[in-house]
Amino acid sequence: MPSYYDLDDIISESQRIPCKIEVTLPNLGILEGNPGQTITKDTKLELPIWIATVLALTEVERDSNINFITLLQPDAVSKKVINTIKTSPTSLDLHSVAPHYYSFIEKWAELFNDKDLVDTILVMLKERAMELNRFAHNLSGVQKESNFLYSLDEFEKLVYRSAHSGAKNYRGWVNGEE
């Protein structure tokens, strides 16, 4: 589990995902940007992930089969994105898909126990990690083709910093800097 104080984790919890309202909710129009109005059944909304997961799990009444909302498929796991990941993980602009892509996938996969999805993401994680490690150790390469580095999501940026500082510390030590 990420740390309670992990800012990236907190931010990633507030990523919005699309969902469909299953019951009419009086006076909750504020969610749609119409304060005081009623949200009717079957409205589509984008809700932060932390509340969407809870509402998707909660039954309206005891033993009823209706939950407050149904989750719809977000872009981040759409067929288009997944196919791009499968074809060429390193050319995908992950940051523009979702700035906290990996934590989003974690939450999504936890909900649906989707093994295929996790396997695909693991392959991508490895390939992209190797690529950014290559960049982190080779400074001239960074200037030449820096598009990849702009496509890193927040977690990958952290990894890049780790990989880079390892190499940098070593170089500094060899060259006699304290």
């Binding site: 126990n113 093994k115 996790v118 994680l125 977690f155 990989a163």
Partner: peptide
């Protein structure tokens, strides 16, 4: 090892987190 330690632990940690989401 020390040079790659943080890179490896970061990536491995994410691997574990992602794997742990599966039942």
């Amino acid at each position: 090892i020390n040079e790659i330690r943080r890179f490896v632990t970061d990536v491995m940690g994410k691997y574990i987190q992602l794997k742990n989401t599966l039942v």
